[in-house]
Design a protein around this nucleic acid. Structure first.
Length: 139
DNA sequence: GCCAACGTTGGC
DNA sequence: GCCAACGTTGGC
């Protein structure tokens, strides 16, 4: 089991949109970055991820689960691009802000802290548990 | 709104 | 194959 982080601008696709899809989940489409795509190719059914709001909020707001492994991105005919499907599992009891991540020494090496532009990122198990604690949320 | 970081494109 | 120019993202 591995852990991930999905970044989205809430005005485009936010946590409430994700929750509205329910158990059916939704394609994480539109990614046009090789690093991000490669991470999605590594994802397995049942892997968990954080859902992060970029721009205005800058905080981790929920937990999602991979409900379909990598497949062609239906938003393009270009077969280079693939995506996974994710479904909402539960919200963070308390959102964990970027500022909190930056100020916690245990999260100093987190990709989110230091490669702000990558939209799909790996999260280590240690980082996963620290953030769940900060968010008062069940890992 | 600005700017730094990063990825991509295209000329050579 | 290198590198300058350009576009995009996202934090501040």
């Amino acid at each position: 089991m591995r852990y991930w982080l999905f970044k989205s601008e809430p005005s485009t696709w936010g946590w409430s949109d994700q929750v509205a899809r329910g158990a059916a989940g939704e394609e994480w489409d539109g990614v046009r970055n090789y690093q991000a795509r490669n991470h999605m190719r590594e994802m397995k059914l049942g892997d968990l991820g954080f859902f992060y709001h970029s721009q205005k909020d800058k905080e981790i707001v929920g937990i999602v689960e991979i409900c379909a492994e990598a497949h062609p991105d239906s938003s393009t005919d270009d077969n280079r691009w693939e995506c996974v499907d994710i479904k909402a599992v539960r919200p963070m009891v308390k959102p964990v802000s970027l500022a909190m991540c930056k100020s916690d020494p245990r999260l100093a090496d987190m990709v989110l802290v230091h490669n702000t532009r990558l939209s799909v990122q790996p999260v280590t198990p240690q980082e996963w548990h620290v953030i769940c604690q900060l968010g008062d949320t069940l890992a």
